[in-house]
Design a protein around this nucleic acid. Structure first.
Length: 870
RNA sequence: GCGGGCGUGGUGGAACUGGUAUACACAGCAGACUUAAAAUCUGCCGCCUCAGGGAUUGCGGGUUCAAGUCCCGCCGUCCGCACCA
């Protein structure tokens, strides 16, 4: 019987229909089996899926299908992160409604995902812009407000002048907006904040328990939370400051260096600086200059340390005879600590630079281990390492740690103006999360501004506060501000006319709880606690590293906040996290320097050198570096084109082979074709076996020789692949499958007519279909049917491993002489060390080396290696 | 500046907790089939070397019977944070 070529398009469509018609991947909350929740970060509906999505969802699907075969009740849902700026930009540019644009994109992308053959439970699908979803988000917001987790304050905020909205600290990268890339400005606005800082310590401590998260992500979050322990110290002014303050409060992590103080520094935004500037135009000018410099990386590196002497003086807390001048200094941040410092130039580089510029004293107080106290001095480089305290009165001779404690203890006991002069304090870098956005396409913040009652939460029964659909984008800014009809409402407290809040929520709020909503997506409350507690935490979460802080930190906070308001009862949302690498591709440029798309290029190879020309014009093409696929560099490959040509299985297989999943993968045409050839090869082999052998008998025939070897290989492979998939080593699993297919192919070609061989080959083919099923589900179903197997492979258990086939009776050990491999020996598997040693020493080549002498030492590691030390 | 990762053939990479380095794939070469091409099949394929062998996991040192793997110091590269007191 001739083998047929595999028609991926026809086969894939057919099996997808079967899966859908039979609801194979619809998951019930009522199921006795152990649960497993696998989730990939849901996509933003930008218009089309890209290769990054294909990689992400292929990985998640392998996990889902493997776990299902292993007997788990698997939840594997999909939805849409659908609010956000691009929809508004499209509205402004193309005169479409953001809602229409978004839902049309969703419809298109849903079909793209469906042709990938993902084992998703589509019955749980939602978009965050669905009224039903954001209504529940508003309900959550009100619960958080009631629980004191939300507040409103006037604050300096990051203003993105291009997107015309506020950004959270996490959304500012190198001083630029994370989406617009515009230089961020500082603006003073009244905004809504989530009290994420209440959880600083908890979010930090719990990182230790996230042992199935990448260390890198945990470290990044740790640094972001930025805990530092120190002392808050109050310095008495000689004469009160113009604000009326008698003391200046500072925060320091180095109280041990207090005797090295030579001046005090105030942030330009410190209230005392502001007050002084009112009557001092020179200082006013200096402060404005500081603000202009900005906070970009380059600015910070190049900016000189600048200051302004206020003329104010304070007393040293440990030696009243020392007076310290107070400067306004450009390198002091208002929003860390108290916005004021004491400066110790000898042991802090910034303070040292400043001291040099303004000719202030440099007094070393930490002596390096081998330095001489009489001669040690600090010139151009501050000394920040360990040492012994000197020049410091009662601290002399102490270690840094002991001195820190001694100063803290002493200052805690001194009382000035009814308060202790020093107080131990823990500071965090993490700020509260500002969630107000001055945009239309987001979840409205459900509060009302009443002239009499102030800010009043909307009543629960009035939810949802629905977005109006009759809006226009002909003017810049937030269309909700101009929609007087929508804004006008009545106060929920007093009933008088009042105005709605027009800010909407940061879209990161939407994605901070969607994983919980999937567990009961149609519930009339934000969550069904029973369902949420059953399914959560997510057992395996997969997505890009770019969310290491943003989304992943917000979600961790949100889960705790939801626990506080009783929406669920867990703390950590994601038990296992995996961050996959990017999909990259070569870049191409035409002779006039324009980026070119790979689809428009023809390649040729002469003498091992690859050259490229533009297919249409024949013009020369420069082959450039390998970069992340991006629209701007045009080095993208459309998944739909690939699936049309080769099928979804080929695309999925290629995405999983070669590169380890956490690393970047390079998309190449050769690689895809290699995967395509493999699909054909498997199909040919399975047809050959299905046509050339009878179905397996229930009785296992007596196994010897090659048939036994093949059975052993089959069972070893099943065990190994299972382990690889469990640890997300997709590339290793792929390599093993290649190896095993080579083994099966050889066995089949050697002849499969003998009953024991027929059995072994048939068994190998069946388990091969099962092993490729998580990666190439359509091909697997087709093979399963071809082999005459019952039911769907998608509903079939993982192949059973016969442990007795995993161990061999004999093992071959390498023999090293003085650490170099010189030969090998085959011994019984359970041979004792003594037996192996004796057998080794009898070998010719060993005796030749020893020349009759006894070896100095023989190391036998059972089942591993023998090393003879001559 | 601070913190972290990575460095193995022409290429992507494998090597479990220190135990046969280079599995598997891509590219390449030779052969078979073919009028030819594609597809497929068979074999070869890191370096030096005359068989035998020798050196080799960015560089230099160390620990060990044994190091790609552990330790110290460099070099390169990527990522995160960044005037955080």
């Amino acid at each position: 019987m001739a083998t047929e070529r595999y028609n991926a398009r026809e086969v894939e469509a057919r099996w997808q229909k079967v899966w859908t018609d039979k609801d194979v991947f619809v998951t019930s909350n009522e199921d006795e089996r152990e649960k497993y929740y696998v989730l990939e970060m849901f996509p933003y509906p930008s218009g089309r899926i890209h290769m990054g999505h294909v990689r992400n969802y292929a990985m998640g699907d392998v996990v889902a299908r493997h776990k299902r075969a292993k007997g788990f009740n698997v939840l594997h849902p999909m939805g849409w992160d659908a609010f956000g700026m691009p929809a508004e930009n499209a509205a402004m540019q193309n005169n479409v409604h953001p809602k229409d644009w978004t839902y049309e994109n969703i419809a298109f992308m849903r079909e793209q995902l469906k042709i990938m053959g993902l084992s998703l439970d589509w019955s749980r699908e939602f978009a965050t812009c669905d009224v039903e979803y954001y209504e529940q988000q508003q309900r959550l917001f009100l619960k958080f407000l009631e629980a004191g987790l939300v507040y409103r304050k006037n604050a300096k905020v990051n203003w993105d002048p291009v997107d015309m909205t506020v950004l959270a600290n996490e959304q500012v990268i190198d001083g630029r907006g994370w989406r617009s890339d515009a230089l961020v400005e500082q603006r003073e606005l009244t905004q809504w904040f989530f009290k994420i800082s209440d959880y600083s310590e908890e979010l930090l401590e719990a990182l230790d328990g996230l042992d199935r998260w990448p260390d890198k992500v945990r470290l990044m979050q740790k640094n972001w939370i930025g805990k530092s322990e120190g002392l808050r110290v109050r310095f008495e002014f000689i004469e009160a400051a113009p604000t009326g303050d008698q003391v200046l409060e500072i925060f320091t992590t180095r109280p041990d260096t207090l005797f090295g103080a030579s001046f005090m520094g105030l942030s330009p935004d410190h209230p005392i600086s502001t007050k002084l500037a009112e009557s001092n135009p020179e200082l006013q000018a200096f402060i404005e200059e500081c603000r202009r410099i900005g906070t970009t990386a380059e600015a910070i590196e190049t900016a000189e340390k600048n200051g302004f002497d206020t003329g104010l003086k304070v007393k040293h807390p440990l030696d009243a005879s020392i007076e310290l001048p107070v400067y306004v200094a450009n390198f002091i941040l208002m929003d860390y600590g108290t916005g004021a410092i004491f400066a110790c130039p000898a042991h802090d580089q910034r303070d040292l630079d400043f001291a040099h510029k303004y000719d202030l004293p440099v007094r070393p107080v930490v002596l390096p281990k081998d330095a001489d106290a009489a001669t040690f001095e600090v010139t151009n480089e501050a000394y920040t390492d360990d040492g012994t305290i000197f020049n410091s009165g009662f601290l002399n001779g102490m270690s840094i740690g002991a001195a820190k404690n001694a100063v803290a203890k002493k200052l805690e006991e001194i009382i000035i103006s009814d308060e202790p002069q020093g107080e131990r304090q823990v500071n965090y870098r993490l700020r509260d999360w500002g969630i107000s956005r001055q945009r239309y396409w987001g979840c409205p913040i459900p509060v009302i501004h009443c002239d009499d009652c102030g800010v009043v939460p909307e009543k629960d029964e009035n939810l949802p506060v629905e977005l109006p659909s009759d809006i226009n984008f002909d003017k810049p800014g937030n269309p909700l501000d101009r929609h007087t009809e929508w804004r006008s409402t009545s106060c929920p407290a007093c009933g008088k006319p009042a105005l709605r809040e027009t800010d909407t929520m940061d879209t990161f709020v939407d994605s901070s709880w969607y994983f919980a909503r999937f567990t009961a997506p149609r519930c009339d409350q934000p969550t069904d606690p029973k369902a949420a507690n059953h399914w959560l935490p997510v057992d395996q979460y997969i997505g890009g590293i770019e969310h290491a802080i943003l989304h992943l930190l917000y979600s961790r906070f949100f889960t705790r906040a939801m626990q506080k308001v009783g929406a669920l009862d867990i703390k950590e949302p994601f038990k296992g996290l995996f961050t996959q690498g990017m999909v990259t591709h070569e870049t191409y440029k035409s002779s006039d320097g324009k980026w070119l798309n790979p689809a428009d290029i023809t390649f040729s190879e002469t003498d091992g050198k690859r050259t490229a020309i533009h297919t249409e014009t024949g013009g020369p093409v420069t082959i450039g570096s390998i970069e992340k696929m991006s629209k701007s560099k045009k080095n993208t490959v459309d998944p739909t084109d690939i699936i049309d040509t080769y099928g979804a299985d080929t695309a999925r297989w290629f995405m999983l082979s070669d590169s380890p999943p956490e690393r970047d993968v390079i998309w190449t045409e050769e690689g895809v074709q290699g995967s395509w050839r493999f699909v054909q090869r498997v199909w040919r082999l399975v047809q050959e076996i299905a046509d050339g052998t009878e179905a397996r008998s229930n009785e296992i025939p007596e196994m010897t020789g090659k048939a036994l070897d093949l059975r052993r290989a089959t069972h070893k492979t099943i065990a190994a692949i299972s382990k690889d998939l469990e640890s997300l080593g997709f590339n290793r699993a792929v390599a093993r499958i290649y190896e095993h297919v080579n083994q099966i192919g050889k066995a089949a070609h050697d002849g499969m007519s003998a009953p024991e061989m027929a059995y072994a080959v048939r068994e190998a083919a069946e388990s091969l279909a099962q092993m490729i099923a998580p990666m190439m589900p359509h091909l697997a179903e087709e093979c399963w049917t071809k082999l005459g197997m019952y039911g769907l492979i998608s509903e079939t258990d993982w192949p059973h491993v016969d442990d007795s086939l995993l161990v061999e009776d004999t093992v071959t050990l390498p023999i090293q002489i003085n650490g170099k491999r010189r030969g090998e020996i085959t011994v019984a598997r359970d041979a004792s060390k003594e037996v192996v040693e004796a057998a080794t020493l009898e070998l010719d080549f060993v005796q030749r080396v020893l020349e009759g002498r006894a070896p100095r030492k023989v190391i036998v590691v059972p089942q591993r290696i023998v090393n003879v030390v001559a």
